[in-house]
Design a protein around this nucleic acid. Sequence first.
DNA 1: GCATTAACCACAG
DNA 2: CTGTGGTTAATGC
Length: 231
Amino acid sequence: MEDKPKECSCFECKFKSTPVSLLDEEELKYLCNNCVHIDFKEGENIIRQGAFTTNIAYMTSGLAKVHMEGPLKKDEIIKITKAPAFIGAPSVFSDRVFHYSVTSLTDAKVCFIDYQIFDKLLLENGEFAKELIKELSSDLVKQFHSCVNKTQKRLNAYIAEVLLFFAESIFESNDFHLPLSRNEFAQLVGSTRETITRIFHDLAEMGILNIQKDRIKIINTEKLSDISRLG
DNA sequence: GCATTAACCACAG
DNA sequence: CTGTGGTTAATGC
């Protein structure tokens, strides 16, 4: 092998995660030789609940939903993930069985990295390990918040929160295409498609949103965050 | 009691 | 897949 094998794009990857950016050349080369990139079309299953795995998955572009089938066959969307992000790490680090599925909402690119490579790098590079812990932890904390908010807020308040999340964190615009069907949105907020339809209409009638099918425009962010806050 | 919230059901574009 | 209307159960003044 060359010092920098041409087939490997890790060196030039624009989406290097913060942890990976802390690797030295030797370590990066090691990582590089043990990962594979896969392109996914919209709606494809990237990670399957119940599957055994020895790979860390890192999404370098695209949007995906992390979802889990509950006790009574119902699918619940845990969260929406935007690249770049690790998408399967917790399952791999715990028992190597995926406890949730990940499905692309847009075309997406995912880099699969052998777990043993991670193991070795974690042991050898403390900065790398620390950064990874930081990323996983902040994700966990966010998850705690949405868990509490989802159960304690009234539905329209939580829906307002999720709409603001899409505008601020995912699209960085108040005008966007919702990448979810009404039913998927319902699965995300723990409701039903009928109720989503109604609340969207209510918000539109209040002059807070413009909605045409998938296209959502937040006209009055102030009011929307009031609704989110005072839920 | 009466109002509100939101799920469930059914039917229709 | 989405919108609507009717119904219903739970919760709150």
